[in-house]
Amino acid sequence: MNTLVTWLQPWEPSLPVFAACALAVSLYAIGMMRGATPGFWPALSYFAGVALIYAVTQTHYDYYSQYLFSAHRLQHLVLHHLGPFLIALAMPATVLATALPARVRAWPRGPAAPLFGALRRVYRILQQPFIAGVLFVGVIYFWLTPEIHFDAMLSIDLYWFMNWTMLLDGLLFWWLIFERNDQAVTPRLSPGRRILLLALIMPPQIALGAYITFSGQNLFEIYDVCGRAFPIDPLLDQQIGGLITWIPAAMMSVMAAIIVLAFRLQGRDSDA
């Protein structure tokens, strides 16, 4: 029992993360209570995505993320790939919008319309496939640059900044991949372009993961400097971390491509 309580306690409590997760869950629940019917699987996918993001940041797991390279890589796999993937797959926009009072929903057409217009333009630029792909791979490379990684793991503020950039970029990217609404603000790519984009982000991730895995030298000194969660061979820790960057990350592209194809086939069936 004690162990469970210890595990559920955040190692480094973060109000923004806690509030964002609470807001995500309650808005979706209110939306469902107000009559939105996302269906069982989308709801499960959405809640699982939020729960995973919460689990890797606001439980004792975060301790391991801070003091083991491999655990850190798994945390980023959830923050950048798996969590946002599940949330975007659920396409929760309609349910979340149902939860909002009519007054709030009218904001984009109210006095703040120019602000929303500007936000929409920035969003659409970020969601251009080329930019989205470069950003997706870019944030992984950026935070894994040894000197930058060192500072990010040393300063608690930079640590949270890094995790937020991973999460937000993950949401942007997977949203672009799974968007199915014609009227949405997100550019609606053809299935072929989505699959091409998914294929193009794979090689750089594989290359980086393989480079880390096969590197004979300790690339991320910060874990020796700060101490590891338990005594483990630094190179073994690095190799596991490299494999996580390499294989499951690339696998997510394949899974997403299969889902995009399935949606395409489903769309054809319903057209017929």
Binding site: M153, L154, V225, C226, G227, R228, A229, F230, I232
Partner: peptide, 21 residues
């Protein structure tokens, strides 16, 4: 931002400690 951890003790009760360097 540092940590430490204890390894399993050997037959003499000696154990390793991981710590910041």
């Amino acid at each position: 931002r540092a940590t430490f951890g204890y390894g399993e003790p050997n037959e003499f009760g000696d154990y390793n400690v991981s710590h910041s360097s």
